[in-house]
């Protein structure tokens, strides 16, 4: 999930950055050409239009750079908001676990369960027997006053939806 959220808006930003660089290169070539023409004689229509195009190219580089900078700061803001939301949710879970009086091992198992890992995966991650994990889960559900994993997860989903759920 982290990877996909990191990807948001980054590809357009990278594309725009590449565009700015290509613009810079194009401007370098064009302006040198224009400068050569100007040094051979100023005032004819061709040199004037080249001068005009050069100015437009340079202005374009500045404008695209400015746009890119706004895009990057928007991405940063989004990432920050997401991190805050994620941190707050983690805090909500931690507080709830403390309220239920979960042991450190149970907190670990409970978190893995919330992330959707099954018993075998949790056992492998913790280097414990599946029986142990199953017993720990049962104790967690008992302390939380729920009867299965779906209810356990729903407890926190409900927490998230409490304010934001639309009336139906």
């Amino acid at each position: 999930m982290t990877e996909t959220t990191r990807g948001n808006g980054r590809t357009p930003a990278a594309a725009l950055a590449a565009f700015v660089l290509v613009q810079g290169i194009a401007a370098a070539f064009f302006i040198s050409d224009a400068a050569h023409d100007l040094s051979h004689g100023f005032g004819n229509m061709e040199s004037l239009s080249e001068l005009f195009i050069s100015l437009v190219l340079v202005a374009g580089i500045f404008l695209a750079s400015w746009q890119l900078r706004r895009m990057i700061s928007e991405i940063k803001d989004k990432d920050r908001a997401l991190a805050v939301a994620r941190g707050n949710f983690a805090r909500v879970i931690a507080t709830q676990f403390t309220d239920w009086g979960l042991t450190p091992a149970e907190r670990d198992v409970g978190l893995f369960a919330l992330k959707g890992l099954d018993v075998a995966e949790i056992a492998a991650l913790r280097g414990a027997a599946t029986g142990t994990v199953r017993a720990q889960l049962a104790r967690i559900y008992a302390k939380a006053g729920v009867s299965n994993r779906a209810q356990f997860a729903a407890f926190f989903v409900e927490e998230l939806l409490a304010d934001g759920a639309p009336d139906t």
Partner: peptide, 19 residues
Amino acid sequence: GWVAIGILAARLVWGLVGP
């Protein structure tokens, strides 16, 4: 060399208006 001129120019502009 000319490509490098363009890239350097864009980077220097970025040094003024970038993040």
